[in-house]
């Protein structure tokens, strides 16, 4: 920590592995919302890697997933343009 990283990340969920345990939402509520049935709704907007709090909670969520269905993916450019600019 303390190192300023360039670039952004998004969380990716593997929908085949995911069983809707909901741990990711508990561990990273800023990045993962949850739907009616307990499955995750991943925030689409990339988060800067310099955001240590978000990155840490994302790592906790990846580590805490009981099905190993969550991954951190680094993106160079925003995959989806910001919804409300």
């Amino acid at each position: 920590m303390g190192v300023i990283r360039h670039g952004e990340f998004v969380l990716r969920v593997d929908p085949v592995q995911c069983d809707g345990f909901g741990h990711c939402h508990e561990l990273a509520p800023d990045l993962v919302d949850i739907d009616e049935w307990g499955y995750p709704i991943i925030r689409r907007e990339p988060t800067p890697l310099a955001d240590h709090q978000s990155l840490r909670s994302a790592r906790y969520a990846v580590r805490g997933c009981p099905r190993q269905a969550l991954h951190i993916e680094r993106v160079e450019a925003p995959a989806v343009p910001p919804r409300r600019a």
Partner: peptide
């Protein structure tokens, strides 16, 4: 599979 919403943490 999934069983409802969680997260009252």
């Amino acid at each position: 599979r999934a069983s409802g919403r969680t997260a009252l943490s």
